[in-house]
Design a protein around this nucleic acid. Structure first.
Lengths: 100, 100, 100, 100
DNA sequence: TCGCCTGATAGTTGCC
DNA sequence: GGCAACTATCAGGCGA
C-alpha cells in the first residue's frame, strides 16, 4: 500500500530521504569549513581577510574589472575619486603600524 | 554640469544620501531598543526572557498562518487536495515510479 | 622562501585551498539537491510541499526542546522561577509601575 | 493586581510594547530603504554598485586602508599580486596564480 | 574583558 | 527580469 490519495508515498519518501542525506553532508562540510577558519585564525590569519581573498579568487578578472569600473564611475560622479590604496608601494605604506 | 561618465551625479547623490539618512534613522532606533533593554534589565528583568516573550508574541501572529500552511500541506500530502500536487499527470504518477 | 610580508605564504595557501575545495564540495552537493528536487518535480511532486515536509521532519527533532524552552519561559514569566528574573529588586518592582 | 510571582507584569508589558513599537518603526524604515533602491534602479542605477558605494562611504579611510593593506599582503603571499587599478594589463594577471 | 555564538541583515542565486 | 529562497556576513549578547 504505497498509494495515498493518488500519489506514491514510497517514492516521496525516497526523495525526502535523499535530500535529507545530502543536506546532512552539506552541513558536515560547512562544519569542516568553519574548522579550517578556526585553525587558520589560531595560526594568526584574519578570517575576514581570508574571506576577501576567497571572494577575489572566485570572481573572474573580467567580472572584477567590470564591477570596479562601474564603481569608480559612481565614485567619480560623487566626487569621491579615492586614490584606492597606493598599489605601487605597499611595502612601506605603514610599516610602523604594528611592527608585527 | 551634473553628468559624469554618462550618469547624473546629482541624482545619484540624492539616492545615496537618502539611503544614508534612512540607515542612520534605523541605527538610532536600534540604539533606542538597546536602551529599553538596558532599562528593563536595570529594573530587574532578564533581557533573554524578554526576547523570548517578544519572539512568542511575534510568533502568535505568524504562527497561525504557518500552522494553517502546514495543515494544508498535510492535507495535500494525504491527497485531499492532490490537484495542487500533481496537475500534470496524477493518474499515472506511480506508474513511472519504477521507470525513473 | 615562504615568508612574504611577515606571513607564511605556504601556510596561507594551504588554508585557502582547503577552504576552496570544501566550498566546491558543498556547491556540488547543493547541485545534487537541486537535481533531486527537479527529479521529484518531474515525477509530479511539488517542491514547495517537499520543503514543508522537510521542515516538519526537521522540526520534529528540535520541536521538543523548543516547546520545553517556551514552557520554561512562561513559567519564569509567571514568577515560578523568579530568582532568575529579578534577583536585585523584586520587592519594589511594582512601585515604579505607575511611574513609567 | 499587577504582581505575579514577585515581578511587575504591568511594567514588563510596558517594556515589551515599547520594544515592539520600535521594532515596527525599524521595519518601516527598512521598507523605505528598499523603496529608495527600487526607485534608483528604475532610474538606471545598479543597486549592487550603490551598496558598494555606501560601504565605502561608511568605512573611514584609515579602516579602509588597513583592510586593503592586509589584503594586499595576503594576495602577494599567494602570488596573486593583482595590479588593482591596472585595467590595461589583465592578460597575465592570473598566470602567476598557479605558478606559485 | 575577551572570545564564542546565536540571531539579524545583506547579498547571491535559482526559479518563474 | 522580478521574486523568493538560501547563504554568508556581521554585530550584539552571553558566558568563561
Amino acid at each position: 500500500m504505497s498509494q495515498v490519495g493518488g500519489i506514491s508515498s514510497d517514492q516521496l519518501k525516497q526523495f525526502i530521504e535523499r535530500i535529507e542525506n545530502l543536506e546532512q553532508e552539506k552541513a558536515n562540510i560547512a562544519e569542516d569549513i568553519r574548522e579550517v577558519y578556526a585553525e587558520a585564525k589560531y595560526n594568526g590569519f584574519d578570517p575576514k581577510i581570508m574571506r576577501s581573498v576567497l571572494k577575489i579568487r572566485k570572481m573572474d578578472s573580467s567580472e572584477r574589472e567590470e564591477h570596479e569600473y562601474i564603481l569608480d564611475t559612481y565614485l567619480i560622479a560623487l566626487g569621491m575619486a579615492v586614490e584606492k590604496a597606493a598599489p605601487k608601494a605597499p611595502s612601506n605604506a605603514n610599516e610602523s603600524e604594528e611592527a608585527a
